[in-house]
Computed example of a mutant assay.
Amino acid sequence: MATKTPLEIIKDGLWINNPALVQVLGLCPLLAVTSTVVNAIGLGLATLLVLMGSNLAVSLIRNFVGDSVRLPAFVMIIASFVTCAELLMQAYTYELYQILGIFIPLIVTNCAILGRADAFACKNPPLLAVLDGAMMGLGFLAVLVVLGGLRELVGQGTLFTDMDLLLGPVAADWAIRPLENYPDVLFMILPPGAFVGLGLLIAIKNGIDNHLKQRQAAQEKAPVVAGSKRVRVTGQVS
Rank of each mutant, 00 (worst) to 15 (best):
N39V: 01
L49G: 07
K11M: 13
A73N: 12
F195G: 15
N206D: 10
P192N: 05
Q214E: 12
G101F: 04
P29V: 04
L14Q: 11
L27I: 06
I61N: 09
F187R: 08
P6F: 06
V108E: 06
L153D: 00
R177M: 12
A217P: 01
V33Q: 09
L198Q: 04
G155K: 06
P191C: 08
I104C: 11
I61V: 13
T36Q: 12
L7Y: 08
L60M: 13
A134D: 01
L43A: 10
N210V: 07
S54F: 07
V22F: 03
R151M: 13
V130N: 06
N63D: 14
I202W: 00
L114N: 03
A142R: 00
A134S: 05
M188F: 06
G26Q: 13
P178H: 08
G53Y: 05
R230E: 15
E220D: 11
V154L: 14
V154T: 11
A121G: 12
T47D: 05
A57W: 03
N210H: 03
Q219C: 04
A57T: 11
Q216Y: 02
R70A: 15
I113A: 15
Q98D: 14
G53I: 05
A46E: 10
V58F: 02
L144I: 02
D209S: 11
T109L: 07
P191Y: 05
A85W: 04
Q214T: 06
V224I: 14
K4F: 01
G101L: 03
T83R: 00
H211F: 03
M163D: 06
G44C: 10
K123D: 14
S238L: 14
S238T: 07
Q219W: 01
R70K: 15
A2K: 04
V231Q: 12
A40T: 08
L138D: 02
P192D: 07
L14H: 02
D162W: 00
D162F: 05
V75T: 10
G133T: 00
G115V: 04
S238I: 11
T158C: 12
Y97E: 09
I78S: 12
L88V: 14
V37M: 15
N206H: 12
L138H: 01
M135C: 15
P223K: 13
T234Q: 15
T5S: 15
S59H: 13
G235F: 04
I10M: 08
E8C: 03
L114T: 08
K221L: 15
P178V: 03
K205E: 15
S238D: 05
A194K: 08
E152P: 04
I77Y: 04
T3M: 07
F74N: 09
C84W: 04
L127K: 14
V154N: 01
R116P: 01
V58T: 14
E86V: 05
G115N: 10
V196W: 04
L43Q: 14
